[in-house]
Design a protein around this nucleic acid. Structure first.
Lengths: 235, 235
DNA sequence: GTGGCACAATTGTCGGACAGTCCGATTATC
DNA sequence: GATAATCGGACTGTCCGACAATTGTGCCAC
């Protein structure tokens, strides 16, 4: 029952150009930091109009493959940073109406693992980040928005300390999804603040002491608490 | 030590327009499937040139927020699918030179969880997908590329069966990263094929029998095996 | 070397233009 | 009456040319 012919998708020039440049970046013949030729020059090289080149460039720019420093005119090759990419992922998930349960299950899979590896690989700098996020959470007991942002920073710091870029990048979108729910949760469940603070403290010290199993266990409990809080606050 | 003023980044018109349209999509005042006004019309509404509108559209298109069916001319609002988004993530990771260990640790966190939930939520359709990927792997013992693609499909099918879009979307980029390593692994380690086939069988039947703990355990063993194979083949 | 300045280069945006293709309506055919 | 051929309008992909604003650069004076 399979068709005899496949539908041939045409590739507009701007997409072809984007693909070619992307290829060059991925195979590193264009290296991070290299300046891109000017639009006029690219148009000449590809034999197309500058407008067409511009459309191609916009694609690569949104993917984080091209960018420019503040106040810089020429584009340079850049490596897509987690924030470039994770916002897209979390927006995609939001548009798919993910439930809190789905988010929670994913956090339950990723965060404890991150905590475990963080206990093994953390540096002093990582510890400082963890301490700073924890302090910021405790300090902002009143300001909900600041507290939520501190929680996000704490998770981010744990993921960074894990020394695993894949885990870090997998975890980043979860934070963005967590924020709105967490905001309402903290406001509705009075004991949430205290429990989060305690958990952060335990996790931080486990990571500091390089007790990886302990770090994992405390993180698991921490995440489980989110679900309990959610059920308490949104039932 | 924080600066008094933040650097104000200028917002070119094409970026502003992209943001406005994105906003409309995220807040669902433009709903999935809605056709976008024509470029000429958008240019008129925003009071800019059509070229400017086109650049904005390119951004949204690459993010998977806009798209068009084959052979369709007008753009429509679309929801970004996993494949739209995960390729960007895995390319980002590739450019950051992730190690096999990092990838493996992330798989170790995500895949067993996916298997566990799959055993609970799988439908008959999911089982068919799993069986099909497994069969395709066993059938293509000779063709390495086909075998690798079947392994990827198997993982994808497990993630889909988990009924968790967050896990599925977190897992998708890992597949793309796994493929190249797995290709060389299968070629270098003779017993890999057999072990993968067996593991897939055990996982599939655990999911079929709704034995969630068993599914998780077998998946863990399966992933562990990848590391053993890697150490065997690349030492 | 350092600072400053004029000039060239580059980006962002504009207006207009045209071929190719898709869509909807109208007309012709069985 | 239903289906097929026809036609005009609408829309996209691409091109050309242009200009203001801003950045990069070479040169000159100190």
């Amino acid at each position: 029952m399979s068709d005899l012919f496949e539908p041939l998708d045409d590739h507009p020039a701007y997409r072809q150009i984007a693909n070619v440049i992307e290829q060059r970046i991925v195979e590193r013949s264009l290296r991070t930091g290299d300046p891109l030729p000017s639009e006029t020059d690219l148009a000449r090289q590809f034999g197309v109009n500058r407008s067409t080149v511009r459309e191609a460039i916009r694609e690569l720019e949104t993917q984080g493959l091209l960018g420019r420093g503040r106040g810089e005119k020429r584009l340079r090759v850049t490596r897509p940073e987690p924030r470039d990419v994770s916002s897209g992922v979390s927006r995609a998930l939001a548009l798919h109406d993910v439930t809190f349960l789905e988010l929670w299950e994913a956090m339950m899979a990723i965060e404890p693992a991150a905590a475990q590896y963080a206990a093994v690989r953390r540096t002093e700098a990582h510890l400082r980040e963890l301490a700073r996020a924890g302090a910021r959470f405790r300090r902002n007991a009143a300001d909900t928005a600041a507290a939520v942002s501190a929680v996000v920073d704490f998770f981010t710091a744990v993921a960074a300390a894990s020394g695993n870029q894949v885990l870090a990048l997998s975890q980043a979108p979860l934070n963005l999804l967590l924020a709105p729910t967490l905001t309402r949760l903290i406001d509705r469940v009075p004991q949430a603040r205290k429990r989060i603070g305690e958990a952060q403290g335990r996790i931080t010290s486990a990571i500091k002491l390089r007790r990886s199993e302990l770090a994992r266990t405390w993180m698991e409990k921490h995440i489980r608490d989110f679900k309990r809080g959610y059920e308490l606050g949104f039932s």
